[in-house]
Design a protein around this nucleic acid. Structure first.
Length: 488
RNA sequence: GAGCCGAUAGCUCAGUAGGUAGAGCAGCGGACUUUUAAUCCGCGGGUCGAGGGUUCGAUUCCCUCUCGGCUCACCA
């Protein structure tokens, strides 16, 4: 798996470094500015033909014909061919040229021309070694297929696999489009702490760390929610944050211990205004980045165009799970429905059982975008209750391809109810639920000054990127996914 | 955390019914002034993931471990 430290190819390249230095050539030279992009020169050939151009990049292919050589030079934009002749650069320089290896980074200057076969090329007059590559690159044509190597040595993946390169370029464009979407709507982008004295805002186990000077333990945030809502108290009316959350949980195709989340809050809004924002945002981002609101994910066509249907969790159980409308209203009914399907409900209360049955029976069917609404209060400790039924909260989760891609609700701004919710969470914690929320007196104090009614939204950026780039694993959209160190 | 699958040259892979392994590309030497995965001739390169066991002999069979993938459980 690991490159051996001493193989023949590395040895030869090390020796060449010495030879270059003896010839007065610095093998790690530079700078090399100004320079032009390969793809631009190819695209603008007719206007640039015959002019002197400078390019820099990595040698990916060499075709030597004795005293004339061709090479493919790749930069971020793409490829351009170099034509290097002994008669054009001189004997001494040509000898140095012949010492170059695949993977070396070089700069070249010369006349832009077309070869007999019609390939746009730089007829090199001067070239400079900018960085000698000691290790051989993955095979140009077979590429780098081993997924472990692709994750562990992402730079090689980016060199070798165009689809990987494209995914991460798209990811950048997606995040940029999201940012623009919110800023265009008058949202203020903010940054709140990652180091939390109390880890709040989500049900999750945190990572712990320690601050030496303060002599106190700190948590890496599991969500920015409680800080963002303090900003609503402070008078900012529309805020959003894009940043990393950290959850001390398992790793699989949909989870990485650190992941990127978007959270947005709108004062005087509610769950409905946030649902509209969500569907509009996702469709807009897709349109701007991919040029379409219809995407294909793992062979299935997904139409992101708003509006997305809104179905309560109970309705969804009836409609998608085939559960009797009477049964979804009571705990006994839920148990009956589960038993009839050979399922067992392990949770304690009506609300928890409802969510449990929903996950088992309904989630896999939610392929096209849909909002599931009215979540049980037990599992929604920061959401406002439905005015007509205190068992439920005015909360929603957008589902696409059977996956939750986010979470939003009318924010609970009643400090007395919020304190009771925290107390219930504290009791669950006491009973051994390590993911239950911690009591946050400082946050309650903020609510006691008055927080405007508000809608809040959280979106898992990585999962959205997976959807928009047709990536089956979260690791495909993380440049450096979490791996165990390679001790082999 | 559990189950299943995988790890052979720098890369991509084949193979050994147990007798220490091959190909293509890459590399090295040579020929070659318009190639496009250039071509032609020749040549090296592997502790077959690690450790232990069985065996005259293990890359191959057995056990343990490491790393990775997938599925499940938990979660976004």
């Amino acid at each position: 798996m690991r490159y051996s430290e001493e193989n023949d190819q590395i040895r030869v390249r090390r020796e060449k470094i010495e030879q270059y230095r003896q010839a007065g050539v610095e093998p790690y030279g530079g700078p090399f500015l100004p320079r032009e992009r390969a793809a631009t020169l190819v695209a603008e050939f007719s206007a640039r033909e015959g002019t002197r151009v400078r390019v820099a990049g990595r040698l990916r292919a060499l075709r030597s014909h004795g005293k004339l050589s061709f090479a493919d030079l790749w930069d971020e934009s793409g490829k351009i061919q170099l034509l290097v002749g002994e008669d054009r650069v001189g004997q001494a320089a040509y000898q140095l040229w012949q010492m170059l290896d695949l993977g070396d980074l070089i700069g070249a200057e010369g006349r832009l021309m077309k070869t007999r076969r019609g390939e746009v090329s730089v007829e090199v007059q001067e070239f400079r070694l900018l960085a000698k590559a000691l290790r051989p690159l993955p095979d140009k044509w077979a590429g780098l297929k081993d997924v472990e190597l692709r994750y562990r040595y992402r730079y090689l993946d980016l060199i070798s696999n165009e689809t990987s390169r494209r995914t991460f370029i798209l990811r950048s464009q997606i995040v940029q489009a999201i940012r623009r979407f919110f800023i265009d709507r008058g949202y203020l982008e903010v940054e709140t702490p990652v180091l939390h004295p109390i880890a709040g805002g989500a049900n999750a186990r945190p990572f712990t760390t320690y601050h030496n000077a303060l002599e106190m333990p700190l948590y890496l945030r599991i969500a920015p929610e409680l800080y963002l809502k303090r900003l609503l108290v402070g008078g900012f009316e529309k805020v959003f944050e894009i940043g990393k959350n950290f959850r001390n949980e398992g790793i699989d195709t949909r989870h990485n211990p650190e992941f990127t989340a978007l959270e947005a809050y709108e004062a005087y809004g509610d769950a409905r205004s946030m649902m509209e924002l969500t569907e509009e945002m996702v469709a807009t981002v897709a349109r701007q980045v991919l040029g379409t609101e219809t995407v294909v994910y793992q062979g299935r066509e997904i139409v992101l165009t708003p509006p997305w249907p809104r179905v309560t969790m109970r309705e969804a159980l009836v409609r998608f799970g085939g559960v009797d409308p009477e049964d979804v209203q009571t705990e006994a009914g839920l148990v009956r429905a589960a038993t009839a399907r050979g399922l067992q409900l392990e949770k304690a209360t009506y609300g928890e059982k409802l969510a449990e049955l929903f996950e088992q029976l309904v989630e896999p069917w939610l392929i096209q975008p849909i909002f599931i609404t009215e979540y049980p209060v037990e599992i929604s400790p920061l959401a406002k209750r439905m005015p007509d039924d205190p068992r439920f909260t005015d909360r929603f989760e957008p589902y696409i391809c059977g996956q939750e891609i986010g979470n939003g609700f009318s924010e609970l701004n009643d400090p007395i109810d919020q304190r009771e919710r925290f107390l219930a969470q504290a009791a669950a914690r006491q009973a051994g639920d390590e993911e239950a929320h911690m009591m946050d007196e400082d946050f309650l104090r903020a609510l006691e000054y008055g927080m405007p009614p508000a809608g809040g939204l959280g979106i898992g950026i990585d999962r959205l990127v997976m959807l928009l780039t047709d990536s089956p694993s979260i690791r495909d959209v993380l440049l450096f996914p979490q791996l165990r160190p390679d001790e082999r």
